[in-house]
């Protein structure tokens, strides 16, 4: 299969890579760049475990063919912390008990970040709607929603 050249900016770092065109952004992130934070839970855009930000929008990276990410800016869970300091969302997830098995957590965090970047003061309903594409089987969502509200507060104070 003919390979294609792709340029990506991932967590602020530029990458140029050559890859067969039939791969997904998720595969490239995990296999080529070693960024295994985003998870593969269903390979079909149903569970949200692979959620990353593409130019600031939350996308299911399992559905993004690598060619369509060419030239775009990607943010993954590994890019959330700044200078060794966890992002307020990461802190709130820890403090509020929003993490159990942790497998959905990276996707949840990125979906929540996309929301807070756009809407710094979401109400509960808006948070529930923003996370509706991210399945969690452990937590019942209660504490995840608490954590997003908490992080929103902290981000407003920052």
């Amino acid at each position: 299969m003919q390979r294609i050249q792709v340029s990506l900016k991932v967590n602020g770092k530029k990458y140029r890579l050559e890859t067969p065109p039939n791969r997904t952004l998720l595969e490239v992130l995990r296999e080529d760049l070693g960024l295994t934070g985003a998870k593969d839970g269903c390979s079909s855009g149903e569970c949200g475990a692979c959620t990353v930000l593409l130019d600031g929008r939350a996308v299911n990276s399992c559905l993004v063919l690598i060619g369509s990410a060419d030239g775009h800016s990607i943010e993954t869970v590994e890019g959330l912390q700044k200078a060794g300091m966890p992002h307020p969302l990461q802190k709130a997830f820890v403090e509020k008990g929003a993490v159990q098995c942790g497998f959905c957590t990276p996707g949840m965090l990125m979906a929540a970040k996309a929301l807070l970047d756009q809407n710094p003061k979401p109400d509960e309903e808006q948070i529930r709607t923003a996370l509706a594409g991210n399945l969690c089987r452990c937590t019942g969502y209660t504490k995840i929603i608490d954590a997003v509200q908490e992080a929103a507060k902290e981000l407003r104070y920052e």
Binding site: E78, Q81, P86, Q90, V94, T105
Partner: peptide, 17 residues
């Protein structure tokens, strides 16, 4: 706080896959 929460929010927890 959970002892394993931080590695899970940082995305560094390594699952089999």
């Amino acid at each position: 706080e959970r002892v394993d929460a931080l590695e899970k929010v940082l995305g560094t927890a390594k699952y089999v896959g």
